[in-house]
Design a protein around this nucleic acid. Structure first.
Length: 311
DNA sequence: GGGAAGTTCCGCCAAT
DNA sequence: GAATTGGCGGAACTTC
């Protein structure tokens, strides 16, 4: 974790808090660009134990937001920051929290990539980095070895996602429980962008989403969901998009793949049976969406993450 | 993997 | 006049 001048203490502490809860699977090292104490954007400074050499040895480098990042609209990062980033070995996983994506963007590390940042800075980010595919709605964006997150707390979501990716759902869920945060938040930051509060809970799609999760094994067409929400299909789709940041169809597939991941890790059920349990009508359908979402086949995923039963 | 059939998504527009 | 709703139709996506 690299602390830049004016670092935000809350976001700086997220990687250590989350990764250190994963049962010794990660070693979290915090450094500065020169090994010297770092002023924060609060009324205190922090003393780090490591200099930029730590970056060369890291498998993952996390950049939390800072006032340094906030100053990078239409200007290059300070030389010390660029020199530090240059020490990162090729292939190292790069992670930014909140507006720290400006640091990666200004260093040219996001060119041609998909990325996000805090919604407040969306326009400024788009203007500053036209070569970056900006995704406003996401809580975080995974572009392979470069991952960016939205506002402050989405850094927690991203760290949990990395644990899930590295060690599976069970470990990530355990960390989420330890940190008393949800293991997975539906939708994106679209739901946090300033917009009028729905007139009354009766007009929300939330209860239908809860119901759908409990009926995931069923065939849930738009007509069925809209009927449950007591809305026309058109209004339901519109409301759903506004509240969740995803279409009902995309959301359903995401939930079904999530449930399939859990079943692959925690049971020996055949893929055929799991596809029925999570509401995909055929195993081929599950395989297609699983591959597209997770990047591996269900069987390959199980081989990697299925925890062997103690003998 | 390819193709047909069914479903979803979303812009547009009229009605409320 | 502005905001919301819901039907229509074509494109895109999903299922089989």
């Amino acid at each position: 974790v690299i602390a830049l001048d004016g670092v935000y203490p809350f976001e700086l502490s997220i990687p250590h808090r989350v990764f250190s809860s994963a049962g010794g699977r990660y070693e979290v090292v915090t450094c500065s660009v020169d090994g010297r104490p770092v002023p924060t954007n609060a009324d205190f400074a922090i003393s780090v134990q490591h200099g930029p050499d730590a970056l060369a040895a890291a498998d993952t480098v996390v950049v939390p937001p800072s006032t340094t990042a906030a100053q990078l609209v239409d200007s290059a990062p300070p030389a010390a920051v660029l020199n530090s980033l240059a020490r990162i070995a090729p292939g190292t996983r790069l992670v930014s929290i909140c507006t720290a994506s400006f640091v990666l963007g200004a260093a040219g590390l996001l060119d041609g990539r998909s990325a996000t940042t805090h919604w407040c800075e969306a326009e400024s980010f788009r203007r500053s980095f036209p070569r970056v595919r900006f995704e406003l709605g996401a809580l975080f964006v995974d572009d392979g070895d470069v991952l960016t997150s939205a506002g402050a707390a989405s850094g927690i979501d991203l760290c949990l996602y990395l644990i899930r990716k590295d060690h599976g759902t069970d470990v990530a869920n355990g960390v989420a429980r330890a940190c008393v945060v949800p293991p997975w938040r539906d939708g994106g930051q679209a739901q946090f962008i300033e917009q009028p509060i729905p007139a009354s809970p009766d007009t929300s799609t939330a209860s239908t989403r809860d119901w759908a999760l409990s009926e995931l094994h069923r065939s849930l067409s738009l007509a069925v969901l809209a009927k449950h929400a007591q809305m026309s299909v058109r209004t339901f789709v519109r409301r759903f998009n506004d509240e969740v940041g995803l279409s009902p169809g995309r959301w359903l597939i995401q939930q079904r793949v999530n449930r399939a991941q859990q079943l692959l890790e925690s049971t020996d059920l055949p893929v055929d049976r799991i596809s029925q349990e999570v509401g995909f009508s055929t195993a081929a359908s599950l395989r297609q969406h699983f591959q597209a979402t997770i990047g591996v086949s269900p069987v390959a995923y199980r081989r990697t993450f299925r925890v062997a039963e103690p003998v």
